[in-house]
Design a protein around this nucleic acid. Structure first.
Lengths: 192, 192
DNA sequence: CCATGTGAACCTTTTCACAGCG
DNA sequence: CGCTGTGAAAAGGTTCACATGG
């Protein structure tokens, strides 16, 4: 979140920012900002603040967003197509560089400049040095597909599946379940 | 996550489940399951486990998913259309009951049985007793749109916007930023 | 005998207040 | 004088071991 805010300020040409201002942009308190950064180093100047673009660079390094990274999309349904059309990955030096689907009618189609490949061929990801994947397949196929992705050398998965998937310790999965997130909202509401 | 798993088990007709089995489905430990439930009551039977569908009902009640709830989609772009086409909300007694966009060329179109309305008319949400919204608009429009949603009586927002939005204390916002989530994956990877 | 529910120990995160530096 | 960086206190969450009950 800090990086996201800092990139916006960089684009606007601002040179430095205080923990207070950054906190406001992100929706936390200033002491949280300072404490968080303090775990990784001393990035600011007392009396001045933090250097916007230099700090963005530091956070990129911490998050290992140094070199440009490629990700593969698996499952080109409605959500998959929306992801392919989304241009917001480049800010983080990320790129959707491949797409796979099991529907042979889709294989060969080119969407947003990406040719859809047969999911049976995911093993090519290892040779292409792609270690990130976005998973947008139905629940029923999820575990099977994840197993093949792990087999293909994928190390990180952003899953949009409405279920938990099992992976080896070395693989990281972040799960986004839109319906579940929406379903958690009423809990915070006053009542009915 | 517990509710999601329990609903699956209900569909499969299973009557009871142990904290151990439920934990495996969700990706946590059994003691975490028992401790979590213990904050809200005693739902299980020693030596047997938890009654699947009854526990699902309890969690629905805790999350205030009792009566069927309606949500409005704001922003019918690629992501918005994917959300309209998604059928996973009904498991939680949730329904996308309205859609809004600022593009007058889209207004009047019917997608997935929902007629797209002019975003200038969001105030109608108050009369229709809709208090949840899904926000899928560009960053530049987000704060303005959120302000109008709050004005229209919206109490919970699931936002897909790549920025923080300010809301009154009484309104709850859950933010999903796909690019940011993908960007956080490399941090957990071994290296390069 | 088996699986729940929970007090207590342990660990992490958040909050605070202020020393210290440009 | 303003804003950072941080030790210490407070709060919160996780893990464990076991008493309890069907």
């Amino acid at each position: 979140m800090y990086l996201r805010a800092l990139l916006s300020w960089t684009e606007l040409g601002r040179r430095s920012i205080s923990s207070e201002d950054l906190a406001r942009c992100v929706g936390v308190h200033s002491w949280q900002v300072r404490k968080d950064f303090s775990y990784f180093g001393e990035f600011g100047t007392p009396g001045v603040g933090y250097p916007v673009s230099r700090l963005a660079g530091q956070i990129k390094r911490i998050l290992r967003l140094g070199g440009s990274k490629k990700a593969a999309l698996v499952g080109v349904g409605n959500l998959g197509r929306a992801i392919l059309a989304y241009s917001g990955f480049s800010r983080y030096s990320l790129e959707i560089a491949a797409a796979f689907d099991c529907d042979l009618a889709k294989v060969g189609q080119v969407i947003q400049g990406i040719e859809i490949e047969d999911i049976a061929r995911v093993s090519v990801l290892r040779d292409r040095k792609i270690s990130l994947a976005l998973l947008a397949v139905p629940v029923g196929a999820a575990q099977e597909v994840v197993d093949s992705l792990v087999e293909a050398g994928i190390k990180g998965i952003l899953s949009f599946t409405a279920c938990h998937v099992a992976v080896p310790r070395k693989v990281k999965v972040i799960n986004i379940d839109i319906a579940m997130d929406l379903a958690s909202l009423p809990y915070y509401l006053p009542s009915g």
